[in-house]
């Protein structure tokens, strides 16, 4: 550990400028009190490259991909970084891959997965008509009030920065590379998200929203929910009647006798089994049965003994010979 501490202080000058397609942009961090001495000139390393998603994305060509985003980054601070220190390209939006607290993950049906992975990044998009497995896709009215004043990023997270157009993206990319080449001092200002005591104070206050706010959100939710439920029922109805590619019709709930069927079926099964037991041939009717049973019991005892013996051997192997505690 001590060697790790010593190295980076000397390193910055010699530190590499690029890795694979990424440019390595060092950001100098604000100086703060109460830190060990070697943290004074600490730098944060941001890896930047042109966005090349594996799934085609219409926004890809006007986007940059960032890796190792600072934990206190958010849309405002990234936007400020590009507009104020990296050539002034205008950012349309920033999508982060992680958030603390995590972004709720709505449960979906399999068919939606592809659609979902695209849409996942931005939570603002409206997907009112999309059918999810439970609840509704919430909008501003129906969502419960947020309880955190802002999101944080997990350490070493990524982000996609979408610029207003392709040109500004190119410009920003060029600017980043020049900054790296020249060793220009780019500062990480942060901002835009409440930190420290304020963050927690606000959180505590937000945790208890006003009654009116809650009530209206619930009302909105429940009316949307009724709509969504109807849609889901429609879907189930459709699934019941449409055969899939193999020609099978999927069995889904909401059939003739409603959702209680599963439990009833199980109850019936138990009942039937009991009846079978009562009326069936008794296990000890024939002599061979008792004989076999005995044989089996004996074998079981033997097996147990072997297992126990093995266990003891394992124990011995683990902790050596048995020793009386002194």
């Amino acid at each position: 550990m001590s060697s790790g501490k010593g190295q980076p202080t000397k390193k910055p000058k010699a530190s590499p400028k690029a890795v694979s397609d990424f440019a390595i942009l060092p950001l100098s961090l604000p100086t703060q009190s109460g830190l060990p001495a070697d943290c004074a000139n600490a730098k944060h390393y941001l890896y930047v490259k042109l966005h090349e998603p594996s799934h085609p994305d219409p926004n890809a060509e006007r986007s940059l991909f960032l890796s190792n985003v600072p934990i206190d980054a958010n849309e405002t601070s990234i936007r400020a970084l590009f507009t104020e220190q990296l050539g002034g390209s205008r950012v349309e939006q920033v999508d982060f891959d992680t958030a603390v607290p995590a972004i709720p993950n709505t449960k979906r049906y399999k068919a939606d997965v592809v659609k979902g992975s695209n849409a996942q990044a931005g939570r603002k998009r409206k997907r009112d008509e999309e059918i999810v497995a439970e609840g509704v896709v919430e909008d501003e009215d129906s969502a419960l009030p947020l309880i955190w004043p802002g999101e944080l990023r997990t350490s070493g997270g990524c982000a996609v920065v979408v610029f207003v157009d392709r040109a500004s993206c190119k410009g920003a990319w060029k600017e980043v590379r020049t900054a790296v080449k020249e060793g220009r001092d780019v500062k990480w200002e942060g901002g835009g998200v409440a930190l420290g005591l304020q963050r927690y104070k606000q959180h505590h206050a937000l945790t208890y929203p006003s009654k009116a706010l809650l009530q209206s959100s619930i009302n909105a939710y429940l009316s949307q929910f009724n709509r969504a439920e109807t849609a889901r029922n429609r879907l189930r109805l459709k699934q019941r009647s449409v055969p899939d590619e193999d020609g099978f019709v999927m069995v889904t709930r909401g059939g003739r006798s409603g959702p209680a069927r599963l439990e009833e079926a199980e109850k019936k099964k138990v009942e039937l089994e009991e009846r079978r037991k009562k009326n069936g041939v008794k296990d000890d009717f024939y002599r061979f049965q008792t004989r076999e049973k005995r044989k089996e019991a004996e074998m079981a005892l033997k097996r147990n003994f072997e297992a126990d013996r093995k266990k003891i051997e394992e124990m011995r192997a683990r902790r050596g010979k048995v020793r009386v505690m002194e």
């Binding site: 961090l29 604000p30 703060q32 109460g34 830190l35 060990p36 943290c39 600490a42 944060h44 600072p70 934990i71 206190d72 944080l152 942060g190 930190l195 420290g196 005591l197 304020q198 963050r199």
Partner: peptide
């Protein structure tokens, strides 16, 4: 260390 300092304020 620096970012924790920022976070904790």
């Amino acid at each position: 260390c620096n970012e924790i300092r920022r976070l904790g304020g």
